[in-house]
Amino acid sequence: MTSNQRLQAILITGRTIEQGVGKEKGKTSKEYLDGVAICHIDPADLKKLGIKGNVNVQISTIYGSVVVKAVESPRAPHAGIAYMPYGPWANAVIDPDTDSIGMPSLKGISAEIEPAGDKPVLSLTELLKSQFGKEPYAPH
């Protein structure tokens, strides 16, 4: 199996305790970045991608694309399902359609995952700048 494999998966977003703790700590904190700019992937799927945990992956859907860190899922087995905590990284790729009821589709989106190579995970400030082209406030 070569690297640079692509994997078709169903993307689920949701809460994790790390996201909860990080959010209370502060959204610009390292805890938040480490807890949220990630994707839980099943070990079998990691194998298919030819990578191990803690490697950056690019997640793409028809709505967008983002680089996050792949983490071997502590909740396996769930082959074919990738899990991202709520946050700006996940929201870069989710389906905005509200089906006319106000609620975007945040769970169960088809996504493509591939190893990101050298592409870095953007920090919150970098992500905002690249997404919105407005200068984000940088706290000291």
């Binding site: 959204k27 709505y63 967008g64 709520y86 946050g87 700006p88 929201n91 870069a92 989710i94 389906d95 905005p96 975007p104 905002l128 997404q131 919105f132 407005k134």
Partner: peptide, 15 residues
């Protein structure tokens, strides 16, 4: 924090 929590397209108009 809707810029984080809304779909990107919605957040774009907000910003």
């Amino acid at each position: 924090d809707p810029v984080s929590n809304f779909p990107r397209k919605a957040a774009e108009h907000l910003v």
